[in-house]
Structures are given as structure tokens and as C-alpha cells.
Design a protein around this nucleic acid. Structure first.
Lengths: 192, 192
DNA sequence: CGATTCTTTGAAAACAGTCAATCTGTGTGG
DNA sequence: CCACACAGATTGACTGTTTTCAAAGAATCG
């Protein structure tokens, strides 16, 4: 499974075999079955986490018990709760597996050492960080600007196929709609 | 005006006088009057931009001519369009001044040189990047989870006083509401 | 002070949410 | 292999919220 991670890294930049090995040395593989949790709200998150296969979701549950999904992380994406990681405070989000999932975990201290010793890794992570920020801002734009139907189209454009892997009610949560409303939007769209 | 920027930097980390001077050497001050543009949609953005005083907004205009504000940048914040900066593609956003504003501009190439030569600056910028990402994700959560009234409260908690500096219709745009709806929400809240 | 910009209000229409019931598909155990 | 159970999706009727459009009322800048 670690090969998926190293292949990902190689695809992003030229790492030496020694660097790949140094990263492997502090990596830990974790397998999650469908529905299993990776982080519970209230726990402190201390890792960097790369998804080798499967699909994670990160979400919050409000006072009424309704889930609000902030992010999906399919294979070859990163996951985790940076806020808890940075602050050392209990996480406000929960992360669990939508599908059977395999992740690589690296403890934060080890990861920081890697970043210091491997400038290439630092650059890669930095680029990802910046891209994530861009993506987040696009999502903000979608959330405040688009109608329900436009949000659905936008999601399908950005993440082709992902809608097929995610239960409808989770997609609705991600888009900020109720499952019923999403169902009706889909019906509308189908008619055209 | 440059003193505001250097004071900001000093407040974030210990820079040597030489480093501060190196940063100053590539900095350019720009003053904007109320309503003046810093970036037009379609232009390519090539700077890093720090707001010394005043207030900027970044927004997009949809097909119907409606503005959607993605971000406010008051004094001591950063502004700009990272997406255009990174990709070299025309910006999808417009940035202009809500109040008379003074900014420090550093051309991207110069900024990258600074980052390479001044590790302290690199760390500071990196931290800001990560915080921005956290903040964006909180905003996504607010946008998909909260009612209009909750969005207003959340904004006031996060940015005390800012609501007083921004025209109501811009705040509405930022929150993803119409000005009329925001007006009515405020009326509701005032009654309590 | 005057013109312009911004905010508020009203009424009607469009839209999304709620609750409850039904339908569908999938996987499990008998 | 079937039947049942269960999670998820859809539908209907209703309620509540937000938008739209138009007009009137404040506030503010030059």
C-alpha cells in the first residue's frame, strides 16, 4: 500500500530513493472498514494523512443532530484536521470512511522533521496547501452564489464520478441542501 | 506607510534589520481611493499584497450582474488572487477598495526570492496560509450550515466592528443573502 | 445642500425545509 | 435461493423562508 503513496510523491516531484525511504520510515498504514472513524470530534488530531484508496469524509454535527460535510477525500488526496493539528485543541470535526479506505499516517513531529530535511517535500506540501486554499475559495463562491441546481452541476464538473460513490444524503449535506431537495433537483435535471 | 508593514512583520517573528531592509527594497506602496480597483477580472495578478490601512474586497460578478464577495481584507491582512498568481491565467475575481486604502505590493518573483533567502519570512507566510485555509473551511461550514441570522452572528463574532465599516449590501453579498433579506434579519434581531 | 447611493418596506412569487409515508435496492440469514 | 430487514431515495402536502420587483425613505459624499 505504501507504493501508492510513494508513486504519488514521485508524480509530484523528483525524490531520491533515500528521501522516499526516510518518509516510509515514519509512515504507518491504517485500514478502515466502511463507516469506521478516523477522528472523533473532541479528540486531538496529530497526524498528516494521505488517502491511498477509498474515500473519507470530514463533517460536523450540529445541535439538531444534522451532519454538515466539509470535505470528501478520495484516493490520492490528503485528509485530517489542520485546525486541531496546529492548535492542539480538540477537533471540531469528525472524519470517517465512506468506503473501505487505506491511509498513510505520519505523526506531526515526524512530518515536520521530514519537511525540514527534504526541501522537495516541503515544496510539494506547500503547493498542495495553496491549491487547497484556492479550491476552498471556489467552494465558498459556489456556496454563496449558486442555486441548488448550479451547485450540483458544479460538483459534478469538479469531481466527475464522485457523486456515484457517495450516498445522496451525503452529497446533499456537502452542498448544503436537504436530501429531499437534492432528490427533487435531480428529478428536475433528469427531465431536460 | 512601510512602517506599518514592518511593524506587522516584527509582530509575527524576529526579523533582523537587514531582512526588513531587504523586504523594503522590493516593496512598493500603492494608495487607492474609495472604490478604486486593484485588480480587474481578466487581468493577470502578479503580486503579493499587504493592506496597511483601509479595506479591500475581492468579488466576482455573475451573468446577471450580481456581485459575490469572497473576502474582505482590512488593515494588517493580505489580499490578492493566488489562483491567477499561481497559474498565470487571467483572474476570475475583481479587487477594489471599500475605503481609502494603502497597500504594500511585492512582485511575485521578488517575493519568492525573499522567501528563499529569509526562512523566517517563509515560516510566517506558511503559517498565514494554513490559518487562511482553516478560516476558509470555517466559512464553508457557515455557508452550508447556518441560517441567515446565524451567518450574521457568526460574522460579527469573527470580525467585530467590520460590519460597521462595510455597506449593508456588501455584507449581504459576503453572506450569500440579498440586501433586502439582510435588512429584514437585522430588524428581527433588533427586536430581541 | 443636492445628488447619489444605500437601506428599508411591502406584497407576491419562487424556493427550500419539514414531516410522514411509500418505494427501491442491497445484503443477510434462514 | 428466497424473503425479510434495513438503509437510502423519492414523493406529497404543508410550512416557512428567501427572493424578486417596485417604491419610498434615510444617509452620506462632494
Amino acid at each position: 500500500m505504501y507504493e501508492i503513496f510513494s508513486a504519488y510523491l514521485q508524480s509530484k516531484a523528483a525524490f531520491t530513493p533515500e528521501e522516499i525511504e526516510a518518509i516510509r520510515a515514519v509512515s504507518r498504514i491504517k485500514k478502515l472498514r466502511r463507516g469506521a472513524g478516523l477522528l472523533q470530534e473532541g479528540e486531538v488530531w496529530r497526524y498528516h494523512c494521505f488517502v491511498c484508496s477509498g474515500l473519507l469524509r470530514r463533517y460536523r454535527i450540529d445541535e439538531k443532530g444534522v451532519e454538515h460535510i466539509i470535505q470528501f477525500s478520495p484516493e490520492n488526496w490528503w485528509a485530517g484536521d489542520r485546525e486541531s493539528l496546529m492548535s492542539g485543541q480538540p477537533a471540531k470535526f469528525t472524519i470517517d470512511a465512506v468506503e473501505p479506505t487505506t491511509v498513510v499516517l505520519i505523526i506531526n513531529e515526524d512530518f515536520n522533521t521530514l519537511l525540514k530535511n527534504i526541501p522537495t517535500l516541503n515544496d510539494v506540501i506547500n503547493l498542495i496547501l495553496q491549491r487547497s486554499l484556492n479550491a476552498s475559495q471556489e467552494r465558498i463562491h459556489a456556496a454563496i452564489s449558486y442555486t441548488g441546481e448550479e451547485k450540483l452541476q458544479d460538483f459534478n464538473n469538479r469531481f466527475p464520478q464522485l457523486a456515484n460513490r457517495v450516498p445522496q444524503y451525503m452529497l446533499a449535506s456537502y452542498l448544503g441542501l436537504t436530501p429531499e431537495t437534492l432528490s427533487r433537483i435531480r428529478k428536475q435535471v433528469a427531465k431536460k
